[in-house]
Design a protein around this nucleic acid. Structure first.
Lengths: 129, 129
DNA sequence: ATGATAATGAAAATCATTTTCAATTAGGAT
DNA sequence: ATCCTAATTGAAAATGATTTTCATTATCAT
């Protein structure tokens, strides 16, 4: 694997963010630093970083990426799709997993709720929760 | 909402399954009972049942649907994508959620691991974990 | 510096899902 | 039971996100 400036930019800039951008949102952000960077390069590298376990990925549609690997979960507003970090630990029962013959690799908790601003202005529910 | 035979078929047949079919897999199954049923009808109704909270949905790509609403989680093989039910409870900290101003609606735990048969025959990792 | 190899960006392709739309059907009113 | 209306269906086209292809460019070990 080669160390390109795009790859470095993608990883370092994602790590600076406290938000969880989609590939397209992130593309807009990165264009400010490298106006020529392509959206597919971003997709490619985000996926590759995710597969290497260097960043997190949230299963929304479009997917959102997370530069923060510290152990935390996300709560997602079922109305506006906004995502907040939420910190708590969950005891995963390894025994149960091993009984099924699986080797645990990792887990994600996705919590859905209604955020306060959407609770006021009742909007219709977003898709792909 | 009208009670069509397609709608009834979709819900009753999904509830009979112990597996978690994708819309397309489910379409093949249902064609045996109603050869004319369309894939988009299946998509439409599965989504609608899911939004009504009548069935479960697993965030894979393609999505998988689950007729079993009893409280359980899924473990997914990172290599072949197979999904097993896994039963254990997780204490979700409501206080933390309310502190952020959210009203809890539900949560899912997605566990990733390597199943025993893939552990033997090392295959490449599937996407969209 | 050179060459081999991998990564890039643009465009096209793909895949899952959703929308459109004309035809059909369900279910209440008659 | 028949009629009427609105909702649902299936087929096809459209969409949106992501991935692939491919010619060009950049990286890095030598």
């Amino acid at each position: 694997m080669k160390n390109t400036k795009q790859r470095e930019l993608i990883l370092s800039e994602l790590r600076k963010l406290k938000t969880h951008p989609t590939a397209e949102e992130f593309h807009k952000i990165l264009k400010k630093k490298d106006n020529n960077i392509g959206l597919c390069t971003i997709y490619r590298n985000l996926e590759s970083f995710y597969e290497q376990g260097l960043i997190g990925k949230i299963n929304t549609k479009p997917a959102k990426y997370d530069g923060d690997l510290s152990s935390h979960s996300h709560i997602r507003c079922i109305s506006c799709g906004k995502i907040h970090d939420i910190f708590f630990s969950v005891p995963i029962n390894k025994v149960e997993i091993e009984k099924l013959g699986y080797k645990l690799q990792g887990y994600k908790i996705e919590i859905n709720g209604l955020c306060s601003s959407c609770a006021k202005t009742k909007k219709r529910r977003e898709k792909n929760v």
